[in-house]
Amino acid sequence: MNILAIETSTDWCGIALIQNGKCTYKIEEQIPRKHAEKLPLFYESLRDKLNLNEIQLDGVAVSIGPGSFTGLRVGLGFAKGLAFAKQLPIIPVPTLNILAVNSGINNTKYSVLMYSHRDIIYVQQFSGSNPANKEGVERWGTIDHSGLIIHYGCEKLMIDENYLSIRPSAETTGLLAEDNFNKWVNENPYDLVPNYISPFELGAKK
């Protein structure tokens, strides 16, 4: 199976090609607010280096959220353009699942946190790489800070906490898409929207 994967859910931007369970090429860079500028260039580099037009793709994977409002829109919009041009399905991959897999934690329960805005955090519990509940949003001060916790982007809110920082990756986006292809694939993806979980201002202080 050949999956082209896109990751733009945070200030990292990346693209990768997954072929039969292995990442054969990837480009990733931390580029806040430059996803729309850089993602097409990353794609062109991958396309030209691998002669992508000669590879029969099975789908386009994209990190679907939660995450950066603009980043998610850029990634999904680019994925839709490729899917339309090449007549491919899209495989939307939950962003917090990507962080969980990248943590490498197995056989134990833990929480995944991702910074949203102000003191608002996306939260989900996992057991190994499997979600234990549905993702949600909470204020930093109301989160249960006991137990094992990993995070992305929460440094500005930490005082005494020393949580493991994990970033998303296009490679893991593609590998998860391949592993869950039959469950997650969307054959008619043009109405797909990012999983913002909530309006951008949810939880804003009044």
Rank of each mutant, 00 (worst) to 15 (best):
H35R: 00
H35I: 08
A36D: 14
A36I: 08
A36V: 13
E37C: 03
E37S: 01
E37H: 10
K38I: 10
K38H: 10
K38C: 06
K38W: 05
L39G: 12
L39D: 00
L39T: 12
L39N: 11
L41R: 13
L41S: 01
L41F: 13
Y43T: 05
Y43I: 07
Y43V: 01
S45D: 14
L46R: 00
R47H: 15
R47I: 09
D48G: 05
L50F: 00
L50D: 03
L52Y: 06
N53Y: 10
N53Q: 14
N53C: 12
E54T: 13
E54P: 03
I55T: 12
I55Q: 09
Q56I: 08
Q56T: 14
Q56M: 10
Q56E: 14
L57K: 04
L57A: 10
D58N: 15
D58A: 11
D58W: 02
D58C: 13
G59M: 03
G59W: 06
G59C: 10
G59V: 10
V60T: 05
V60H: 10
A61G: 11
A61S: 15
A61I: 11
A61C: 10
A61H: 11
A61K: 13
A61L: 08
V62Y: 04
V62C: 12
S63E: 03
S63Q: 03
S63N: 07
G65C: 09
P66D: 08
G67P: 00
